[in-house]
Design a binder for these strands. Structure first.
Lengths: 288, 288
DNA sequence: TTTATTAATGCGTATTTTGCATTAATGGAT
DNA sequence: ATCCATTAATGCAAAATACGCATTAATAAA
C-alpha cells in the first residue's frame, strides 16, 4: 500500500470530485480513478459510493479518512524526527569530563552545543580516570574529556585545550609568588595530591614538577576529586597541585600560584562511532 | 512511500543480512537492496550502516524501526476495523420503536442482531409518531419500527409482524370476554386512547373498531405512551384499546380481551441508505 | 596472499502506472 | 419526455518502475 494513494484518497475525500481532485494533486482523472480503485481492491472494501454524477464516502471511507489523517501526520512527524537524528540534531550523547574543567571550558562547550543543536540530549557524567576507556569502549559514554593521553586501538583522541598547573594554598600561607618556592620551603609542606595512577600522563607531569625542585613531597592525602582537595586546602590541612582552571570555580580564601608546567585536555571517542551527533559535536569543539 | 518497503526494512532490521532477509520476504537480494536504497533516498537519510560484509542500523534506523513497527500495527488494526465496517459488522445504527413492542418482538430482534453481529452499536430511541419520518430523513434515526403505513418518497417500508387490538380493563371490570361487549355496554365506558393523529393508520383502525360497534367513545384522556395508558387503566380511571403485544409486559390486575382487528408493525428505512449495517439488519429481520 | 562471503550494480525483461481519447451513466434544463 | 452537460470508468499505447540474473567489488578470515 502506497502512502501516496492514501494522500490521493484524502484529497478526494475532501473534494468529492474526481476532476477537481485530479487537478489539485497533479495527475489525470484517469490515474486518480485507478489509484482509488486499487486502494479499494487492496483493502477489500469500498471507500466511496459513486455513480457517474456523485461521489460520497461510505461509512468505512469516513472512518478511514479520519484515521489515516492522524496516521499520516504521525508518520510525517516521525520522519522529520528521524531526519533530525540523521543530521545529528536529535539524539543523546553521554560525555565524561573531569571536575577541573566544570567551571571553565565545559560551560563554553555546552553553551556552543545547545546553541547549535537545541534538541540534543546531553548527559554529563564523572568517571574515574581508570574507567574512562572501558566506559568508552562499552558504549557507556560516547565522549571522554580527560587529561590523559591514550594510544588505545579504536579510540581517537585530540587535544582541545591546555592549562597550567598551579600550587593551591590558603590565603594566609607564606607562599605568595612563584619566587617563594624552593626545595627547602617545599620540603616541609604537607601535600594533597590526585591518586597516583600508573601510566597516567597527568600524574607524570606532577612527578616531573617535584623532580624539578628535586625533592619528594610529603603527601598527606590522595583524592581523585578536585573539589575535595580544594576543601581540604581551605581548611588548612595542606597545599595542593591542581590545574589552574580551578581558579574559575568560586574559591575564596585560596591562592593559585601558576607554575610553568602545562597539562593538556584531550577529547577521546570511538573511532568507529558514526553517530551523526558525535560528528557534529566534534566539529563544534574543534572549530574553536 | 510504499508500506511494503517499510516491511522489507523491518525484516532487514531484524536479520541484518540481505541474502537471508531477501529469501525470507521472497524477493532477490538485488531487489531488496534497491528497495532499501529507494527508501533511504525518499527519506533523505541513512537507515543502515553497511559495507560489503556487515549491516547495522544507524541511530535514525533504530528510531524508525521502533516507530514504524508500532505504526504498521496500528494501520493494520485500522484496516481490519474498516473492513468490519464495510461488512456491516461494525458501526452504529439508531432504531426508533414504539413502546408496545418493547417486551415482545424488540427483544427477539435485538437478540438476533447481537448474536450475529456482536460488535454492532445499537441505539434505541422512542420517537413520537409524528416525528418518525422527519427523523429518518434527517439521519437522526436509521430505522423506524412503527404501526403506521407510509408511502413517502425515498422511504422504504415493509411489514414484519402483526398483532391484534385488545380491550384492556381492570381485573374487577365486568367485561370478561368479547361476548360481553355491546354498543350499550361500551357507550357508558370511559376510554383512554392514543393521540388521534391525522392520517395515522393505527388510529384509523381504532376508529373502525368503534364504528363496528356503532358508537362514539367517551374519551377521558389521550396519551401517546402505552405504559401511561396501562397505569391509568390499572388505577380504574378508564379502559383502553391497545395492541395485544402489551400482554408481554408484566401487567398484573389487568385483563386483555383480544379483538378481531389486526394492527401491522412495519419497518421503515431510507431507500438510499447503503450503510452495510442496515443491509445486514434488514436481512436478519426479514429472514424470520 | 588467497578464498569465501556478501552488498552493490549493469542490463534486459516484466510489471505497473500514466495520459489520451472515448464511453456510458445521470441529473437538470427545455 | 427528450436532450444536453457533466463526469466517473475504461481501452489502449507509452512511459516509468521494479525485478531477476549475472557480475563486480569490497572485506574478513584462513
Amino acid at each position: 500500500m502506497d502512502l501516496q494513494r492514501i494522500k490521493y484518497f484524502l484529497a478526494l475525500a475532501e473534494q468529492l470530485h474526481y476532476w477537481k481532485t485530479a487537478e489539485k494533486v497533479n495527475i489525470t482523472q484517469s490515474a486518480l480513478t485507478r489509484q482509488i480503485q486499487s486502494l479499494e481492491n487492496e483493502l477489500g472494501l469500498q471507500l466511496f459510493e459513486r455513480n457517474k454524477r456523485n461521489v460520497k464516502l461510505t461509512p468505512a471511507g469516513k472512518f478511514l479518512r479520519e484515521k489515516w489523517e492522524v496516521e499520516l501526520n504521525e508518520l510525517e512527524y516521525i520522519h522529520q524526527f528521524a531526519k533530525q537524528i540523521h543530521l545529528g540534531e536529535r539524539g543523546t550523547i553521554t560525555i565524561a569530563h573531569p571536575d577541573s574543567i566544570s567551571a571553565s571550558i565545559m560551560p563554553d562547550i555546552l553553551a556552543k552545543i545547545t546553541q547549535a543543536f537545541p534538541q540534543l540530549q546531553i548527559k554529563l557524567v564523572q568517571v574515574l580516570y581508570e574507567n574512562q576507556l572501558d566506559f568508552l569502549k562499552n558504549y557507556k559514554i560516547d565522549l571522554a574529556i580527560t587529561r590523559d593521553i591514550t594510544s588505545e586501538q579504536g579510540i581517537k583522541s585530540k587535544k582541545i585545550y591546555s592549562d597550567h598547573l598551579a600550587l593551591v594554598v590558603p590565603l594566609a600561607h607564606s607562599f605568595k609568588r612563584i619566587e617563594d618556592l624552593s626545595t627547602e620551603s617545599l620540603k616541609v609542606q604537607k601535600f594533597i595530591l590526585p591518586t597516583k595512577d600508573e601510566g597516567s600522563s597527568y600524574s607524570e607531569i606532577i612527578q616531573a614538577l617535584f623532580k624539578s625542585y628535586d625533592f619528594v613531597p610529603d603527601v598527606f592525602l590522595h583524592s581523585e576529586f578536585g573539589s575535595t582537595i580544594i576543601a581540604l586546602v581551605r581548611k588548612g590541612l595542606g597545599i595542593a597541585i591542581l590545574p589552574d582552571s580551578y581558579m574559575h570555580h568560586q574559591s575564596p580564601d585560596l591562592r593559585f600560584i601558576s607554575l610553568p608546567f602545562k597539562t593538556d585536555i584531550l577529547i577521546n571517542w570511538r573511532a568507529d562511532d558514526h553517530n551523526p551527533v558525535l560528528a557534529n559535536i566534534l566539529k563544534l569543539v574543534f572549530d574553536h
